[in-house]
Amino acid sequence: MDALKQKLVAQAQAEGFDLARICRPWDVPQVPDRLETFLREGRHGQMGWLAERSHWRSDPSALWPEARSVIMLGESYTPEHDPLAVLKRPREGAISVYAQNKDYHDLVKKRLKRLARWLIAETSGATEVKVFVDTAPVPEKPLGAAAGLGWQGKHTNLVSRDLGSWFFIGSIFTTLEIDVDAGEVDHCGSCRACLDICPTGAFPAPYQLDARRCISYLTIEHHGPVAPELRALLGNRIYGCDDCLAVCPWNKFAQEAREVRYHARADLLGPPLAELAELDDTSFRAKFSGSPIKRIGIARFLRNVLYAIGNSGDAGLIPAAERHCDAGDPTVADAARWAVQRLKNVENRMDRFQDPA
């Protein structure tokens, strides 16, 4: 099997993956306790599917009992630019690096399927396979750590000594017995950069996440209004948040993404909020065709844009928000009124400063 594994790793790299490691489906003994605590504390927020499918996430071998090995793949999407720079430009929208071009689900899954077909052919059909990328109840990060892709850092994301924090994960479950790799150990040490930079304090403790305060969750998964006390903390982040990933010291070893379709589109590197506020459903779908942003829909996207406008401190954006104050969607209308009031307060303070009489 050593020869097959060597060929498998080489083929994975030929398909575009940067890392390929092997573990067993049952090599994640710490998952049940961590997941139980996460769910018991209600830290999953509105993501009810995490609770509904917790038995599979707790024990990935239950997802497909016939599986004997899991091929864990990592693919870099390291940005060419500083993802935190846009936060200093409050009139522009900050979009998470992974969403600045094509949807990784589609790209990674195609690679996984090609590699899986290669494995079936290489073994003359002597194996069955299933591929997963982020959309099934698979504990990909613990499996990735067990296989040696990296370790779960204090921000709970996987960190690699080779790729830093910027890489996608995919998995192929197979009925083949393939020699496993050693799991990765924790290399975070005393560093807490990812914890300290979080704008909303989403980490109750190292290695613990409360999704209800996570900006990625709030801007993508959470539907309805965001709690008033959290809106100002969103800043100009309109889809996801990269703060905890971007400050990881291990990123100095990261290699730039080979896949050009992960490189940022120019129009998504800080798009003007005023222009985004003008989008309707048709133009939204056209602009974000093939992008993961399209998944959240126009209403949730406008909600995020309007919160960002309210946080911009620029009273010149009041008209961009006012046009949505009577929107048919109550969450959008609420976000617009919040933004207008917040900017008018800024305007009033400026007036008093300029005319103390």
Rank of each mutant, 00 (worst) to 15 (best):
D27I: 03
R231S: 06
L84I: 14
S58C: 12
V9S: 05
W49L: 05
G313D: 07
G48M: 14
W151M: 06
A308V: 07
A145P: 04
T78L: 08
Q6C: 06
R265E: 13
N311K: 02
K344R: 15
S171G: 12
H44G: 05
L158F: 05
A211V: 11
A274T: 07
I215L: 15
I318F: 09
V226S: 03
G153Y: 00
D186L: 13
L35I: 11
E259Y: 03
W338A: 00
F203H: 02
D281C: 10
R114G: 13
L143N: 02
G93H: 01
P65C: 00
E275T: 14
L8K: 01
K154H: 09
A336K: 03
A274M: 06
R323M: 12
V159G: 02
S283K: 14
S61Q: 12
G270S: 08
Q11I: 10
W166L: 08
L163G: 02
P356A: 15
L39T: 03
L233P: 03
S58F: 04
E347L: 14
L112F: 09
D329V: 03
I178P: 01
A205K: 12
D280A: 06
V332L: 01
A147E: 00
A182P: 02
L4F: 14
E36H: 09
R53C: 06
A264E: 12
A277Y: 02
R34C: 10
R300N: 14
A335Q: 00
E140I: 07
N304E: 10
L209Q: 05
A286S: 11
I95P: 00
D33Y: 09
F288K: 05
N157E: 11
C194A: 06
R40P: 06
L273K: 04
D181C: 08
E347Y: 09
R261H: 12
P204A: 12
A126I: 07
Y239S: 04
S124A: 15
A227M: 11
Y77P: 03
L115A: 01
P137W: 03
H105Y: 13
A357M: 11
Q46V: 10
K287L: 15
V31W: 02
L84R: 11
A264I: 13
P60Q: 07
A333S: 15
E184A: 15
A315H: 07
N251E: 09
A10L: 12
R40W: 12
D355K: 15
A121T: 14
R342Y: 05
R117I: 05
I197R: 00
A257G: 07
D103T: 06
I220S: 03
R300L: 13
A254V: 10
